[in-house]
Amino acid sequence: MGLVHLRYLKIPATLKLNSLPLFMLWNLQKLDIDASLSISEPLDICRLPQLKFLYLVGTIQLVPPRSVHHNLESIRYLDHMSCTEELFMRIPNLRTLGVIAGWGKAFNWFQSLACLYKLEDLHVCGKILHLDSVGSLSIENFLPNLKKLKLFGTKLNWKKMYVVGMLPKLEVLFLEDDAGVGRKWKPRDRGFRGLKLLIIGNCDLQIWKATGDHFHVLECLVFIELEGLKKIPSDFAHITTLKSIKLYRCSNSIISSAKCIQEEKLDYGNDAFTVDILRDNEFDESLWY
């Protein structure tokens, strides 16, 4: 079969992108680069007009296409230096995006995501600068269709998390590996209106001043390796939609407060609510992706 008919291609990291006969891969729909490190050479996606999915464990830089690339739907992971309005305006149908941000000084790439009206799933690894500047945009128009957000090591002060809470269609939120920093989190009112799944892991949070009104349609709460948090707010027992709390390697005080919530729900006649203390052989984070 000739390369012109190829739909899927997986290549090793040692193979240079510019050595590929891209002019013959114009029907390629999925490109999987087996690399855990950054690819130094940028990829010109205008030479792959049918490309829908671009995957690698490391990061890649993209050359903004000269015209609109309508087919590209998913990129993981993109170097934050490529996150420009110029690029995003030319890949308007992107629905899934992963970004790895550098630690040095850089432009405010996060605000350029406002061009991605169809984005539904966003992963960010690395520090986010100037999140407050998003507040100058109409939040209803900033990522209006985003349903799933995963933040790793973003080091956002918990006070800044209100911007995340205002995303209008957000249903799933992962906050891991110091995604939020600080010992106290008091969410603002009228945030997280549609959030159904909240996962918090590996951070120094100690006091969580939340009420059921902050997460009033939450269905599942997951804590991963939290030792400092003193307790889960007791008001979570009043969230009628809450079905389960799952705990993995958490402190005894968290476990105790979760069981108190379970007892209170039983008093309300809700015997379907569960508290799951996960063991190592039961823990599979991919189940929540």
Rank of each mutant, 00 (worst) to 15 (best):
L119P: 00
L119R: 02
L119H: 00
E120C: 13
E120H: 11
D121T: 09
H123F: 14
H123K: 13
V124R: 09
C125P: 00
C125W: 10
G126W: 01
G126M: 05
I128W: 07
L129F: 10
L129Q: 14
L131T: 05
D132M: 09
S136C: 12
I139P: 08
I139S: 12
E140Y: 08
E140T: 11
L143E: 03
N145F: 06
N145S: 11
L146P: 06
L146V: 05
L146N: 05
K147L: 09
K147Y: 09
K148D: 00
K150F: 04
K150T: 13
K150E: 10
F152C: 11
G153Q: 13
G153D: 12
T154N: 07
L156Y: 10
L156F: 09
L156R: 12
N157Q: 14
K160P: 03
K160M: 12
Y162I: 11
V164M: 09
G165N: 01
P168S: 10
P168M: 05
P168R: 13
K169L: 04
K169R: 15
K169C: 05
K169Q: 14
L170E: 00
L170N: 01
V172S: 09
V172Y: 12
V172I: 11
V172N: 11
V172L: 08
L173R: 00
L175C: 04
L175Y: 01
D177M: 10
A179D: 05
V181A: 02
V181S: 07
K184M: 14
P187C: 05
R188A: 15
R188C: 15
D189W: 11
R190F: 15
G191V: 10
G191F: 01
G194D: 14
K196L: 07
I199T: 05
I199P: 02
I200W: 04
I200N: 07
I200T: 06
I200H: 05
G201N: 00
N202G: 02
N202Q: 07
N202H: 10
C203K: 00
D204F: 10
D204C: 10
L205T: 00
L205S: 01
L205W: 02
Q206I: 03
I207T: 10
I207C: 04
K209G: 07
K209F: 08
K209S: 11
A210W: 01
T211L: 06
T211K: 11
T211S: 13
G212W: 00
D213P: 01
H214L: 05
F215C: 08
F215P: 11
F215W: 07
H216F: 14
V217C: 03
V217H: 00
V217R: 03
V217D: 01
V217A: 00
L218G: 07
L218C: 07
E219I: 05
E219C: 11
C220T: 15
L221M: 06
L221N: 02
V222H: 02
V222Y: 04
F223M: 08
L226I: 13
L226W: 01
L226Y: 02
G228R: 15
K231P: 01
S234H: 13
S234R: 13
D235K: 10
D235G: 08
H238L: 15
H238T: 14
I239C: 03
I239T: 06
T240Y: 15
T241K: 13
L242Q: 05
L242H: 06
L242R: 12
L242F: 11
S244H: 08
S244Q: 15
I245M: 09
I245T: 03
I245H: 04
L247D: 12
Y248K: 01
Y248Q: 01
Y248L: 01
C250F: 12
